[in-house]
């Protein structure tokens, strides 16, 4: 879901970088020193998850997990995702410097939306409610990310509309997969280590 270097137009790049810089600045200010290791842990989980390929029909996709990152971190998801994407850029040449702002925004904004929408719900005492919301959370995070990628492409130029549509459609199965994964993962954490969810 990374947008590579050289594709987006200057206004889109500048908007992405500006919004990401503001959000990262705000969240760093809110973050306490003792939280830094925890944020770094989730940042690296996000990084490592992108290396885990799971089969999906004839091909395979890598895990995204921005929904879970949002649930666990709230606003700190912004710096966490920024750092992970920066490392992906330097180590694997995936994404890049000029697109770092846009790519971080596309991943982290949905994470924060999920935090505000489902923060209480997935910690609910009712298991059924919690797990249903976990599915919606995983699904919605990818849907929003895909939509934002599409919007970034369309704002770059109208001829990209087809590419944008394709990108969004290709992510439909991924949304369902991420939803299912989020259900099991949240279910696992609720059973094994509820402290992580701060229940």
């Amino acid at each position: 879901m990374h947008i590579s270097e050289g594709i987006l137009s200057a206004p889109v790049l500048v908007t992405g970088a500006g919004l990401t810089a503001t959000a990262v600045g705000y969240s760093l200010k809110k973050m306490e020193h003792k939280e830094v290791p925890k944020v770094a842990i989730l940042s690296s989980v996000f990084f490592v998850a992108s290396l885990i390929h799971v089969p999906l029909g004839p091909s395979s996709v890598h895990l995204i997990l921005n929904g879970i990152i949002g649930l666990l971190l709230g606003w700190s998801a912004f710096p966490a995702i920024l750092v992970a994407l920066a490392f992906q850029g330097v180590l694997f040449q995936i994404g890049g410097i000029t697109t770092l702002g846009v790519n971080t925004l596309n991943m982290a904004f949905p994470a924060i939306i999920c935090f505000y929408l489902f923060n209480r719900g997935v910690r609910s005492e009712n298991n059924f409610i919690a797990l249903t919301l976990a599915f919606v959370c995983g699904f919605l995070a990818v849907l929003l990310s895909g939509t934002m990628v599409a919007v970034a492409l369309v704002f770059t130029g109208e001829p990209f509309i087809q590419v944008a549509k394709l990108a969004l459609i290709a992510h439909l199965p991924v949304m369902i997969l991420e939803g299912a994964l989020t259900v099991f993962c949240i279910g696992f954490l609720r059973k094994v280590r509820p402290e992580i969810l701060e229940i």
């Binding site: 290791p37 925890k38 770094a40 842990i41 989730l42 690296s44 989980v45 490592v48 998850a49 885990i52 799971v54 089969p55 999906l56 029909g57 895990l63 997990l65 879970i68 997969l177 299912a180 994964l181 989020t182 259900v183 099991f184 993962c185 696992f188 954490l189 094994v192 280590r193 992580i196």
Partner: peptide, 27 residues
């Protein structure tokens, strides 16, 4: 790994375990 719920469940537990272990480590 195949395209089925069992596979996804297993991977989700794997991620969950990674989270649990690394939380402890970070502390």
């Amino acid at each position: 790994p195949q395209t089925n719920l069992h596979t996804y469940k297993t991977y989700a537990y794997l991620v969950g375990m990674m989270l649990v272990r690394s939380y402890d480590r970070s502390k």
